[in-house]
Design a protein around this nucleic acid. Structure first.
Lengths: 339, 339
DNA sequence: TATCAACACGAAAACGTTTTCGCAGCAATG
DNA sequence: CATTGCTGCGAAAACGTTTTCGTGTTGATA
């Protein structure tokens, strides 16, 4: 790398002091117009740009937001990043993206590295392992050190900080209710094991909707998919019951349900309705296209960034942690009946 | 934010000099065991961590790789990021992700900001606008300043730097050849306008395969989809011809082709074969699942990162720019006949 | 002519590190 | 006793900025 031009170099070349150059470039009144012109011309000619590191060290701020995600190859997180980036750029921040790979140790280490001066604040969606182990040591230290932190999507109550979450119970409720209203009677659900909060909450919404109309909960209509085993055969079990709808807590389970229905010669949506989750591309482009609960990843990212930047820029104020809830809506497509 | 503990503070508290503390923490032989123990104990107790900014300024390196993408909500780029991140983490680097939104001005500005000390090198996939306008000023300045740069996926010949690309011509050829070998006679192609290089190259491969078996190129079997208009109706035109296969240069065009075929009552793959591009989720989970040319986004990211880090860590060596070509393979699924 | 403000600039500290060099104290050697 | 060498530590520079404070020169005013 060629040595970049610095204030020092300009000063030496022009026979003035470093401070004069700095002031001239910032158009200080302390410097005569003549000197300013001379310095600016020189700086322009050599395309001078102040060194970020030096500024960051001096100002004790980086204008960088750290993001820690469980994974990225996931349409939802991509949209979240997009939302964060948009807000961040608008407010003059850059983003630094890291992945925990759902691994608690890597999550902790990443936090450690980033918070030693590399970022002004952190946006985190918790690693699966962290949630399973219920260990939040690394986050509590963050909070103790008063480093701005906003949790989104995968959060946990015992961490006291700002949060942005989707109303998963409400979303599960909406989805189930929609199926009921379009005439479905025996609604199965393909969900996750209980320690995955999102799946748990969506199931709770499902149960709530069923109870409300006086239907009982039939455990044979529920499966908590263990992704370490074959997914299709687990969901297939639901079809042994006499069902006319499947509520899948994510897009992939929905696509698999459709495949199974087709294989069994069932017509969609006449014989069976399928509703999925997230606004990924699968739902939109598969045929039949899949009715889904759309998740506003972009909105979530944008709001999380907004909250974080507010914290960063008002560090002295003591404001109790807030939680923002993003609600979701049903996007009706071909895999379900219309109202 | 609580004031973090620094070497200075430790020095003052323990009544030694700053240099002694620094040396003690790095286990220098110049410091007596006794003093070292005292300092280390104190540092441990207060959980001392060196400040990254200070280190970066001093060492004139950030251990950060900048990535500039045209967009992110795209399965392929997600996998590329994943690949980059993996290699980077392994080599002790962090990644800073930015988006050009396919906008030349934003691309240029981002480059400007990042290269003023924020990153050690840059990984870029060119913005659409930059390619259309053929303006590479900002990149030439980068090269002139000898800032490590690797271009991937969307590149251009007139920028002289390391590159990682996929063999699009070869991929288009393979796909077409595969269709021919499974007995297809009249193969249509849904591609992009010519200024999108990837589409252009894949079309070239398509033509090459057809020529090789003595078939002519029928322009009625080709459409360069203009995404600003309705996509489906453009692809539908192909079906006015008597075709028995569609080669789509991306996953979405493939999904749309399947939808059209279904609407027309054609059986897949008996009446018509469809082959797509990229290894996104749509192809895998739609039914029928779509045969695709899989693109190794992860590999591409990993190799690009590898090349960049090599440049960063051997700045003095003058090595001529290299181009790595990632080849792709056909992943046969349900939308095409078997060999 | 002495005083004072205004003007134009420079010196130095600060941000948090690492590293080179110098030096004091002490023991060993001749 | 004088020299040498070693041990253990501190001062200071360096990375590139910004900002506070000080200072010399000029011109105007009393």
């Amino acid at each position: 790398m060629k040595t970049k031009i610095t204030i020092k170099i300009i000063a030496k070349e022009l026979g003035v002091s470093v401070s004069t150059v700095s002031k001239a470039l910032r158009d200080s009144h302390e410097i005569s117009q003549e000197t300013k012109d001379r310095i600016k011309a020189y700086a322009d000619y050599y395309n001078y740009r102040p060194n970020n590191l030096a500024l960051q060290l001096r100002n004790q701020q980086t204008k960088v937001i750290g993001i820690i995600l469980p994974q990225i190859v996931h349409h939802f997180f991509s949209t979240v990043i997009k939302g964060i980036e948009h807000e961040a750029t608008e407010r003059g921040y850059n983003i630094m993206v890291c992945f925990s790979n759902n691994n608690e140790a890597k999550e902790a280490e990443t936090i450690d590295v980033l918070t030693n001066g590399s970022v002004d604040g952190l946006l985190v969606s918790l690693a699966k392992e962290t949630l399973e182990n219920n260990k939040f040591h690394h986050f509590n230290r963050l909070i103790h050190n008063e480093i701005p932190l906003v949790l989104f999507d995968r959060t946990h109550n015992s961490i006291e900080c700002d949060k942005v979450i989707v109303d998963d119970v409400g979303a599960g409720y909406k989805a189930t209710k929609y199926l009921l209203e379009t005439g479905c009677e025996r609604i199965a659900i393909a969900t996750t094991p209980e320690h995955i909060t999102v799946g748990l909450h969506r199931s709770q919404g499902y149960k709530k909707a069923l109870m409300e109309v006086g239907k009982g909960i039939d455990p044979r209509l529920m499966v908590g998919v263990d992704e370490s085993k074959d997914i299709q055969s687990q969901i297939e079990k639901l079809f042994e019951q006499n069902i006319d709808a499947v509520f899948a807590v994510n897009e992939i389970y929905a696509a698999i349900a459709i495949r199974i229905a087709k294989e069994k010669g069932m017509r969609i949506p006449e014989d069976i309705s399928v509703i999925g989750f997230t606004d990924g591309l699968i739902s939109e482009y598969s045929s039949p296209s899949i009715t889904t609960v759309v998740q506003y990843g972009y909105t979530m990212g944008k709001q999380a960034a907004e909250m974080l930047i507010a914290r960063i820029e008002n560090k002295d104020d003591v404001i109790p942690p807030k939680t923002k809830v993003i609600s979701s809506n049903i996007k009706v497509r071909e895999s379900s009946k219309n109202l």
